[in-house]
Simulated scan of single mutants.
Amino acid sequence: MSDPAAAPRLGGTAQAAVMAGRSLRISSRNTDALITSLALPIMLMLIFVYFFGGAIETGVAYDSYVMYVVPGVLLLCAGFGAATTATAVSEDMKGGIIDRFRSLDVGATPVLAGHVAASTVRNLCATVLVFGVALLIGFRPAASLSGWLLAATVLIAYIVALSWISAAIGLLARSPEAASGFTFFMSFLPYPSSAFVRIESMPSWLHGFAENQPVTPAIDSLRLLLLGQPAGNTPWIALAWAGGMLAVAMVASGALFRHRTR
């Protein structure tokens, strides 16, 4: 009989893949949260387009309000989808499964990376669904191949960064309910930005925050790239924001995990 101690151990990448598969299976069973994260961005897009779109002035660069609002909804969808990561991580910490993982020599990085990878897959599926509905209600992108690739890069970078931030929140919160509450602030960020209205139409005291918060350059990049308009250095500013948030979130997640499991 072979000695279990002598059995080869999975590497970090393989462990993360196993953890991602576990998180996806858990997500598939949590149908309420899955449906909410998919349906809410679509409902908000339909509400803004059909209820408020006729009263919102977006300038002469856009034929209709749906052409303006869809990029913002894509980022909003990323925020809603990433928020479930905080709850999932908090449930793992509260349920004691982390102690069992540690006994199997599974460290912080594979566990958290698995949650983030699963969040990215869920978010990409939700993005495809939201984008499909947008096409049905009149969104007509005019991006070049390079524009599509750069827009996808910006979107995926923000999904990953927001997912790692959510993982850190899940480690910081002491309960899944608290984790869900903390992520509200992250999901709120697209509203005081250029997602739904032009920043110039907001009160003057809000301009500074709306123009210089991390979500605004991402939304502007997606809008300009998808509509085939010159984007300048806006995508690179957006990617710099995403890279900075990702670095901070990964360092914070590692420190919080060590603190919670010592």
Rank of each mutant, 00 (worst) to 15 (best):
H259A: 15
S37T: 08
A247C: 06
L112W: 10
S163L: 03
G228Y: 01
L38Q: 00
G72Y: 01
I97E: 13
S187F: 14
Y50E: 05
A39W: 02
V215N: 08
A238K: 08
I26V: 13
I98C: 11
W241T: 07
A195I: 00
F51E: 14
A33W: 15
L172A: 13
I47P: 09
L40P: 07
I165C: 10
A118W: 04
V60I: 15
A5L: 03
G147S: 02
T216P: 02
P110H: 11
A157E: 03
L224T: 07
S187E: 14
L149G: 13
G12L: 15
W205R: 04
A152V: 11
P176R: 04
L224K: 06
P176E: 09
Q213M: 10
V60N: 15
P41Y: 03
A17R: 05
S204C: 12
G53C: 11
V111M: 04
M250S: 09
G208W: 14
R122L: 08
P190E: 04
V251A: 11
T234I: 07
L24C: 10
W164A: 06
S221D: 06
P203S: 11
N212S: 10
F196C: 02
E57F: 10
R223N: 03
S221L: 08
M43A: 14
M43L: 14
D105V: 09
F257M: 03
V121P: 06
L10K: 06
T58A: 03
V70S: 14
I165Q: 07
L227M: 09
A6G: 01
E91Q: 07
R262L: 08
R198H: 04
P71L: 04
R25C: 12
V89I: 11
A167R: 06
G254S: 01
S2D: 15
S163C: 01
P190V: 06
Q15G: 13
I35Y: 01
P41F: 02
F188E: 05
E91G: 03
S27I: 02
A179M: 04
V69N: 03
L224F: 11
S204K: 15
M245S: 13
V197D: 01
A39T: 06
G170V: 10
A20G: 12
A218K: 09
L227W: 08
V89S: 00
G72E: 00
T261F: 06
G21T: 13
P214Q: 12
S204I: 14
F139P: 13
T216C: 04
G208F: 15
W236R: 03
A173W: 03
A78Q: 01
G79W: 05
V18E: 15
C125N: 06
Y191T: 12
I97H: 14
L124P: 05
G79Y: 08
R198Y: 03
S144H: 10
N233V: 12
I219Q: 07
Y158G: 05
M93L: 04
G12M: 15
A113W: 05
G53Y: 05
A242Y: 01
A231Q: 02
T216A: 04
R260C: 10
L150P: 01
L225A: 09
A134P: 00
F196T: 00
S2H: 13
T87Q: 09
I97W: 11
